[in-house]
């Protein structure tokens, strides 16, 4: 659906490019996660997709058409939900929705339908008459999202949409966003909350320093390239076994072992059993996203 081919972008007066040869393939009807540390280039990429800045080279196409063509044909095809609370604090929820609907050029009937459905989607019924400045963080995020949906976009760009909300609102937001593809909206979701990306994205890209470090389905990304075993024991790992499997201590009686062949897993478990060492838990062949992310981005501090 959305093809990004080899795009680059450099902000004026900065030594290194914000995006450098980025290529992504976003399939229709899913949630695509864009993961990266602060300053990785996520917001720049989102801004380029939203038409806020023009990339210096490369090409972006949506359904085979360039962004300019798409915008000309349907100005509401792509919607951006910025990281900030991009609405008017002194206006009520309903007034904000009506204003942004009006600015999108919705007809009177469309405006009514779309406003009502956005209110229902973000469960804002109780606060429609309340000024936006009086809303809690969670409700503000919901309003921010609701505004993004007014134009029934084909592609919705969400830039860190859950920053600063309580766990209940976060779950509500994630569930709502997860339901969007079923209604025909493809979502690009940027965040640095791994568990959010893991929870709702089917495909992800990890970016850092303007480059794509990994792209693929969540299963592909999380599949371990080397057969590592994380294991938690009730006693310390016997020294002989530790040496044979090049074990490293990763927590209290938790170890990471290097298993050259999957068949050795049964041997290892037998050995542990014979040593009277009981296994509490184990994880083999798949990393969690945080491990992959930290390995790819080299753990260095970014701010």
């Amino acid at each position: 659906m959305l093809q990004i081919k080899n795009i680059s972008y450099r902000y004026r007066d900065t030594p290194s490019p914000a995006l450098s040869g980025v290529s992504l393939d976003v399939p229709a009807g899913g949630i695509y996660g864009l993961l990266g540390p602060n300053g990785a280039g996520k917001t720049t990429l989102i801004s380029a997709l939203a038409g806020l800045l023009t990339v210096t080279n490369g090409q972006i196409t949506l359904h085979g058409q360039t962004l300019t063509e798409i915008r000309r044909e349907n100005p509401r095809a792509i919607a951006l939900v910025p990281q900030d609370y991009a609405f008017y604090p002194m206006l009520t929820v309903a007034e904000n929705l009506r204003f942004f609907g009006g600015v999108l050029g919705l007809s009177r009937a469309e405006l009514k339908t779309q406003t009502d459905s956005a209110i229902a989607f973000a469960r804002l019924e109780q606060v429609v008459g309340k000024r936006a400045e009086q809303l809690s963080g969670g409700l503000r995020r919901r309003l921010n999202l609701a505004i993004g949906l007014l134009g029934k976009p084909q592609l919705l760009l969400l830039d860190e949409p859950t920053v600063g909300v309580d766990p209940q609102s976060r779950h509500f937001l994630l569930d709502s966003i997860a339901a969007l593809p079923a209604a025909g909206t493809t979502v690009i979701y940027t965040s640095h909350y791994m568990e959010e990306i893991e929870a709702i994205c089917q495909k992800i890209a990890i970016v850092d320093q303007g480059q794509v470090l990994a792209e693929g389905t969540l299963t592909d990304i999380l599949r371990s390239p080397v057969p590592l075993l994380d294991i938690g024991l009730e006693q310390p790992l016997p020294e002989a076994i530790a040496q044979r499997y090049s074990a490293t201590l990763i927590g209290e009686q938790k170890y990471r072992l290097n298993l050259p062949l999957t068949v050795t897993l049964q041997n290892l478990l037998d050995e542990l059993d014979s040593e009277g060492c009981r296994v509490r838990n184990l994880n083999f062949g798949q990393h969690d996203l945080e491990q992959v992310f930290m390995r790819l981005t080299n753990r260095s501090l970014r701010d």
């Binding site: 806020l52 100005p75 792509i78 990281q83 609405f87």
Partner: peptide, 15 residues
């Protein structure tokens, strides 16, 4: 307020 809260940017993204 429009500039600081990113509303101007949102309006630009809306064309």
């Amino acid at each position: 307020i429009e500039r600081q809260q990113g509303t101007l940017q949102r309006l630009r993204a809306m064309g």
